[in-house]
C-alpha cells in the first residue's frame, strides 16, 4: 500500500500542489531517522527472555536509580509548578524594572547546553561555591548528593511551567475578575475559585512536561550528582554504565522501560493539552 492511498486527502479540494511529495518525504525521513531506530530498542529487547528482562530491569541498583530519577523529577516538577506559576504571574501582572530581560532569560535552560549548566551548578553548590559555602555550615550538602540531582532538575524544568501558564494568563478576560469582585469575592477567593480552575490544565501540562524532561535528563545531572551507586545514580546513567561494560542487551532493557514510560507520559500530556484547549478555547 503506498503512502498516497493510506493518507488519501479526505476532501476533494486539492488545488495546491506538492501533497504527495511533501508527505512522502516527511514519512521517509521520519521512518529512517526516528521510527526504525526506535524500533531497534524493542526488537533488541525481544531477543531477551521475559525472566532475563525482568531480572535486568529490577536489579537493586537499577531500582534505586528509578526511585531517584522519578522521585527527584516529581519533586522538581512540583517545585517548578509552584514557583513557575508565581514567576508567570509576576511577568504578566506586574511592572518592574528589568522585566523584559527576565522574561527572555526564562528560556535559558532551553538554550544553555546541559553540560554547561551541569558544571556551573556544581561550581555553585560545591562546598567552596557561592551557594554551597553558605549551605554546608548549616549541615546541608547539595553537590554530590541526591539533593544536587534535584537542583539540576529544577533548573532544566523552569521554562516549561512558566511558558505554558503565561499565555493563558495573558488571555484571561479581566471581566471575570471584575465580576467576582463586584459580587463580593475576596482576591484570594477570586484566585482559587475563578482563576486557578482556568489555569489548572495548563499548569498540569507544564508540570507533566517538566517531569517528562527531568526523567530523561542526563547532561546537567551527572556532574552534580556524584554518581554514587545505590544513592545518586539516575536511570539514564545506568544505561551509559551498561554500555561502557559492553552490556548492550542490559542497556537496551532499561531503555525500553524508559521509552514505555515516556510514551505513556506523552499520551497523558496530549490529553492534558486537549483539556486545556477545551477549557480556554485556545488552539494549542
Amino acid at each position: 500500500m503506498s503512502a498516497a492511498t493510506l493518507f488519501n486527502p479526505t476532501r476533494q479540494t486539492r488545488v495546491l500542489p506538492g501533497f504527495g511529495l511533501s508527505l512522502g518525504y516527511t514519512l521517509v525521513y521520519l521512518s529512517l531517522l526516528v521510527l526504525i531506530p526506535l524500533s531497534a530498542v524493542f526488537l533488541k529487547t525481544a531477543t531477551l527472555g521475559w525472566s532475563e528482562f525482568w531480572a535486568v530491569v529490577t536489579s537493586p541498583r537499577v531500582v534505586a536509580s528509578y526511585k531517584l530519577s522519578f522521585g527527584a523529577s516529581l519533586l522538581a516538577a512540583g517545585i517548578n509548578a509552584v514557583f513557575g506559576l508565581m514567576l508567570a504571574w509576576a511577568l504578566v501582572r506586574y511592572t518592574f524594572p528589568g522585566k523584559k530581560l527576565i522574561d527572555a532569560l526564562v528560556d535559558l535552560p532551553f538554550a544553555l547546553p546541559t553540560a554547561v549548566a551541569g558544571i556551573a551548578l556544581t561550581a555553585l553548590y560545591a562546598g567552596n561555591g557561592w551557594v554551597g559555602s553558605i549551605l554546608e555550615p548549616l549541615g546541608l550538602k547539595v553537590a554530590f548528593t541526591p539533593l544536587g540531582v534535584l537542583v539540576a532538575l529544577v533548573f532544566i524544568g523552569v521554562p516549561f511551567v512558566v511558558r505554558t501558564v503565561q499565555p493563558i494568563l495573558e488571555d484571561l478576560e479581566t471581566e471575570l475578575e471584575e465580576a467576582a469582585a463586584s459580587l463580593g469575592a475576596h482576591r484570594w477567593q477570586t484566585f482559587t475559585k475563578v482563576i486557578l480552575p482556568i489555569l489548572l490544565p495548563a499548569l498540569l501540562t507544564g508540570f507533566a512536561l517538566a517531569f517528562a524532561r527531568a526523567v530523561g535528563e542526563y547532561g546537567s545531572v551527572i556532574f552534580i550528582a556524584g554518581n554514587i551507586p545505590m544513592v545518586s545514580e539516575i536511570t539514564p546513567l545506568m544505561i551509559i554504565t551498561k554500555l561502557e561494560q559492553y552490556d548492550y542487551v542490559g542497556a537496551t532493557a532499561i531503555a525500553t522501560v524508559m521509552l514505555v514510560f515516556s510514551f505513556a507520559l506523552l499520551l497523558v500530556i496530549n490529553l492534558l493539552q486537549a483539556w486545556s484547549a477545551k477549557r480556554t478555547g485556545r488552539n494549542r
Binding site: 516527511t26 521520519l30 526516528v34 521510527l35 526504525i36 531506530p37 526506535l38 531497534a40 530498542v41 533488541k44 517528562a212 526523567v215 530523561g216 535528563e217 542526563y218 547532561g219 539514564p236 546513567l237 544505561i239 551509559i240 554500555l243 548492550y248 542497556a251 537496551t252 531503555a255 524508559m258 521509552l259 515516556s262 510514551f263 507520559l265 506523552l266 496530549n270
Partner: peptide, 23 residues
C-alpha cells in the same frame, strides 16, 4: 503524524544515542 514528529522530544538523550548504536 504530528505526534510522531514530536516523539524525539520525549525520548531521553541517552536513549537517542543508544538507538544508533543498536543500528
Amino acid at each position: 503524524l504530528t505526534t510522531l514528529i514530536d516523539l524525539p522530544f520525549s525520548v531521553s538523550p541517552v536513549v537517542a544515542g543508544l538507538i544508533y548504536v543498536l543500528m
